[in-house]
Design a binder for these strands. Structure first.
Length: 251
DNA sequence: GCGACAG
DNA sequence: ATCTTGTCGC
């Protein structure tokens, strides 16, 4: 007998979830979507891993964002497919509202994948966000897919204690007694990563997957490959008009 | 008022 | 986010 809206049926979600008219509305949407985040393991066997990231040129007159969603084999971690999407930035970058800038494009890149990953590592925070809706949670709820937030710097909260130097060493990122994320060392002498719950994954499972997909670099393969794909896309479809000089003999 | 502030 | 080759260190 519940009149409450049921979870989105994989595809059509309210327009405001992706394109709110203003920041005040965006903030309300974040609080609303944060209530839909599932911070426990609610995922099946991971037969295909996913990675998501975007790239951009600060001086692009068209203000475009280049998004990439990659699929990797969970075993060898080799990329097996990629989905891409390019479009004008939905809104300017505002700390705390990254989801409204990247998720609309990531959804398109995701749709362009020939196969759908069972778990996605997203470049950016998940629950370690002032309203509990970092880009990883945002994408996870919109797609209703298990996601993990993998950020390279802090946005919200504070380290609970010192961090060891060995890969695998970790400390908690906390806020008012609550654990928001794991500050995880993934490589010696490299700044730590902030691993958090995105959607339908527990924090422990999130950390497990990040450690399990490390290959000697600071970033886990899913996120690293997505980053490379997004950059390649930008350099291919970005840098147009070489602005050659009239005196040049090249056509 | 001041500092902080994912990508 | 991105600009950028070589270079110093583990």
């Amino acid at each position: 007998m519940s009149g409450a809206p049921s979870p989105p049926a994989g595809g059509t979600v309210p327009a405001t979830w992706l394109r709110p008219p203003d920041l005040a509305t965006a903030r309300r949407v974040q609080v609303e979507l944060a209530a839909r985040v599932v911070a426990e393991d609610a995922l099946g066997p991971v037969r295909l891993l996913g990675g998501a990231d975007t790239s951009l040129d600060r001086f692009d007159p068209e203000d475009r964002i280049f998004a990439a969603a990659v699929a990797l084999d969970p075993g060898g971690l080799a990329p097996v497919a990629a989905g891409e999407h390019v479009a004008r930035a939905p809104m300017p970058y505002v700390p705390g509202f990254l989801g409204f800038r990247e998720v609309p494009l990531l959804v398109e890149a995701w749709a362009a994948l020939p196969r759908r990953p069972d778990l996605v590592l997203v470049d950016g925070h998940g629950l370690s966000h002032p309203r509990g809706l970092g880009v990883a949670c945002h994408l996870g709820v919109v797609l209703d897919v298990p996601t993990i937030g993998v950020a390279k710097s802090r946005l919200f909260g504070e380290e609970a204690g010192p961090l060891g130097p060995e890969p695998g060493d970790r400390t908690d990122l906390v806020w008012q007694g609550r654990v928001l994320a794991a500050v995880l060392r993934t490589r010696r002498r490299a700044n730590p990563l902030y691993v958090s719950v995105g959607h339908r994954v527990s924090l422990d499972t999130a950390v497990e997957w990040v450690l399990r997909t490390l290959r000697g670099y600071r970033l886990p393969e899913p996120t690293r490959q997505a980053h490379l794909a997004a950059n390649a896309l930008r350099r291919a479809r970005g840098m147009h008009a070489p602005a050659g000089h009239p005196a040049d003999g090249a056509g």
